[in-house]
Design a protein around this nucleic acid. Structure first.
Lengths: 151, 151
DNA sequence: GTACTCGGTTGCATATTGCAACTGAGACAG
DNA sequence: CTGTCTCAGTTGCAATATGCAACCGAGTAC
């Protein structure tokens, strides 16, 4: 089987491979983290992430191509361009939060800032976890992989 | 600021950057997906992922270094080596599932196999989502970032 | 007009990845 | 105990991707 075919096969059958295809390149995820934290402009991403300008240009382009960011020229200052998360991009929040919580638990030193709260109650969100239908967190021993057809 | 310093600064302050440092390289995440699906041996990863052998060797080594996989020589056949997920690695499951669900929703064609169920009830797990303390899924408008000190 | 900012692009050096061939230890059959 | 095969890599080399610094054109500020 050719490399390309194998690649396409993966893309078809595995949504993780498909997802990584669009957000798995180096810097892409850190750019998204920046976007979630409010960054919008080229120079903001460049200076806060310290990414090379050509790579940043390339990644922003790709994220726009893939519909994760939207490129919006600023009508007031026609030099400026705002990169904003689309719905598709915003929907990556669970991935971002899961990764962040894992990083906090296992890699980084202690909890990080800022924190997401329910705007109404001002209580922090529940930790990202694998839960059953009643929202009880499941431990690994309680889980099993089954084929969709066996449900 | 030097590149190295900037890098270290990121590592210190951002758990996402820290997490990506250990699982963000090309192929690493797909290797982990394989491990979650039961792959354990070098040749299994190599043939199912189609990854180059030297890169696979390098990534497995890194994942072991970072405590995400454990390298276990098989006492029965001393050629064979089993790579198994550690607790730290198994704890990446929420990240994997979030990414997979996003991929299913936005990139890949339809839902994928297999599916995680609660072993006791055989009901599928709840979708990964941002939830409030009462486990109600929160929409984007209901969320707000606040500094940890303001809680 | 002069200087400066924003969002890039270009050229070139370095690092990472991919491919194919090879290796060495161990299993295994006769 | 010899030849063959499998497993888990390693090596050399070509192709890609990344990083850095300098430059650029359009637009803004003075």
């Amino acid at each position: 089987m050719l490399d390309l075919d194998r690649h396409r096969e993966l893309l078809r059958t595995c949504s993780i491979a498909a997802a990584l295809e669009t957000v798995g390149e180096r810097w892409s995820f850190l750019i998204l983290r920046g976007a979630f934290n409010g960054l919008q402009h080229f120079e903001e991403f460049q200076s806060t992430l310290g990414i090379a300008r050509n790579i940043l240009s390339n990644r922003l382009g790709r994220l726009v191509e893939n519909g994760i960011l939207r490129r919006e020229p600023d009508p007031a200052d026609r030099r400026r361009v705002a990169y904003r998360l689309t719905d598709k991009g915003l929907d990556l929040l669970p991935v971002l939060l899961s990764l962040r919580e894992w990083g906090e638990r296992w890699v980084a030193s202690g909890p990080s800032n800022p924190v997401l709260v329910d705007k109404a109650t001002r209580r922090p969100i529940a930790p990202m976890a694998v839960r059953d239908a009643d929202m009880r967190p499941l431990t690994r021993g309680e889980l099993e992989w089954v084929d969709r057809s066996e449900l």
